[in-house]
Design a protein around this nucleic acid. Structure first.
Length: 478
RNA sequence: GCUCUGUUGGAGAAGCGGUCUAACUCAUUGCCCUCUCAAGGCAACAUUCAUGGGUUCAAAUCCCAUACAGAGUACCA
């Protein structure tokens, strides 16, 4: 039945887990789980300049928060495949690079960055189709190399691309794709500082870790032939590749860290009170659709339904409204106990409520369960009630100063004072009594009290407002 | 410039030769409910599938060209 499916998510620790990364991890995870395979988390930390502290931890733990749980990672390595950080296996890359040199398909290059830049400019100004390394160092003699070394130059190692070779592969998402080796220059596999480049290190890692399938971003499509070249030289079987579309912002551009109107990082969503299941579901449907048009999937259902061939090949736009809808759906469908676990920390941010008992807090939280789109929203909604808005418009002032309103408020206040217990039934009865006594109903009955209590003309039901404020505070505001 | 990929509504998209005057969902709009807001319910929302050719009895679906968009073209991943 063939080998075990093994897939991976291999971020560079240059930033926290963001939407795009989470999505590629998600699809790899689904693929692995669908075929009872392993999902491997590996760190590609070869860009030592750009690595930032905390990034690896965020990448791994925010993934776990989402329910995308690696079978192997730096924190739970399988000794057979460890280490899981590229910088911890430098000697291995060196070893394989030497093999390529011995095979005559890789060579030392002593060109400096300045020389390369010059070369590129020259080629471009001569109207050359595309820039390729001119193989200046391809056939250097030992003496020439020695001379460069004496100048203090440190070589890179470049891979020699084949001539007139067609790289053909069947993309899991896009079908058959071909590249011509002539369009690709000899590229660097080992930097002069002894650290491998991405295109080389992935191949070594994927092979050594026995990765069978790679679902990755479209930006890697044109890297694929370079990697295939390495597989061919070693005589290794390449994994199956699938290139997913990128996620774009509302301007149609690739999501970047500079898109400030879109939250990028998982931690931001978590802090704002998004549910991991909702984000999981949202990400799943961003560029993927099920055969039966379903919109809501649990993790298990997503695993069962997933098929990489149904992954879209045109870019998907990140739609925040859709995320909000998805999250609110999941909040509404949470059972109450889970809802409390989720929402009470937000409710506790409201100072006014600090003396309320847990049961009271739960009752208040429930009022908003059908209403909110994310956890932090309850804080804003409660603040609108708890913090009275004194900045009334002319219309609002007129409303509370009307003769009828004064009557309503007076009667309501007096009756409330005599009320022993405040709850939905008693407060509703209070409004009925007020209506019967004053003969005023509808808007003229409710609005004056609403404005008096909160300073707003909109908001949740009156009995809930009074419940939240409590008898004393309500009376003091009337 | 070159290489590769893509183009169905405001958004995610289904459809991949006839049943398409194009499913489903989000958004939007209207109505109902209602003191208000939200939620909920109901309804409306592409005669058309980037454009131009071609193949075919028949095209959103196949082919070609053009336009536009994206990605890559680094000793970044």
């Amino acid at each position: 039945m063939g080998e075990k499916v093994r897939v991976r998510y291999a971020p560079s620790p240059t930033g926290y887990l963001h939407i795009g990364g989470a999505r590629s991890a998600l699809f790899n995870y689904l693929y692995a789980k669908k075929y009872n395979g392993d999902f491997v988390f590996r760190i590609e930390d070869t860009d030592i300049e750009r690595n930032i502290p905390g990034a690896e931890e965020s990448q791994l733990h925010d993934l776990i928060w989402l329910g995308i749980i690696p079978d192997e990672s730096p924190e739970n390595p399988n000794p057979k495949y460890a280490p899981y950080r590229q910088m911890e296996k430098l000697d291995i890359y060196k070893q394989y690079a030497q093999k390529l040199i011995d095979m005559g398909v890789a060579y030392e290059c002593y060109c400096s960055e300045d020389e390369l830049a010059e070369m590129k400019e020259e080629q471009l100004s001569n109207g050359v189709k595309s820039f390729k390394y001119n193989r200046h160092c391809l056939n250097l003699t030992e003496e020439e190399k020695e001379k460069y070394r004496k100048e203090g130059r440190k070589p890179t190692i470049r891979l020699k691309m084949m001539e007139n070779h067609i790289f053909k592969f069947n993309d899991l998402v896009r079908g058959e794709i071909t590249f011509n080796s002539n369009d690709i220059g000899d590229f660097v596999i080992m930097k002069s500082n002894g650290i491998p480049t991405y295109n080389y290190a992935v191949v070594i890692d994927d092979h050594l870790m026995e990765i069978t399938h790679v679902l990755r971003g479209e930006e890697h499509l044109s890297n694929t032939p370079k990697q295939l070249q390495i597989y061919e030289y070693f005589g290794w079987e390449a994994p199956k590749f699938g290139h997913m579309t990128i996620i774009v912002n509302p301007n149609g551009k690739k999501l970047s860290k500079r898109d400030h109107d879109i939250l990028q990082f998982m931690s931001q969503y978590r802090d704002l009170g998004y549910l991991p299941e909702a984000i999981f579901n949202f990400l799943f449907l961003l560029g993927w659709t099920s055969e039966d048009n379903r919109e809501i999937f649990t993790k298990e259902e997503a695993i069962a339904a997933f098929d990489p061939a149904r992954l879209s090949s045109s870019p998907s736009m990140f739609d925040n409204k859709r995320l909000l809808w998805t999250n609110s759906y999941y909040i509404k469908h949470l059972d109450d106990e889970k809802y409390f676990d989720f929402i009470i920390p937000f409710v506790k941010k409201i100072d006014f409520l600090k003396n309320k008992s847990d049961d009271e807090l739960k009752r208040i939280a429930l009022i908003f369960k059908q209403e909110i789109h994310y956890g932090q929203e309850i804080v804003d909604l409660l603040n609108e009630i708890v913090t009275i808005n004194k900045d009334l418009s002319e219309d609002e002032k007129e409303m509370i100063n009307k003769e009828s309103s004064k009557k309503v408020i007076e009667f309501f206040k007096k009756s409330l004072q005599n009320l022993d217990e405040i709850n939905e039934i008693t407060v509703k009865q209070l409004f009925r009594d007020t209506q019967a006594n004053t003969g005023i109903k509808g808007k003229d009955l409710y609005m004056p009290i609403r404005i008096k209590l909160t300073g707003h003309t909109h908001g949740i039901e009156m009995f809930n407002i009074i419940d939240i404020l409590g008898k004393e505070e309500t009376l003091s505001r009337l």
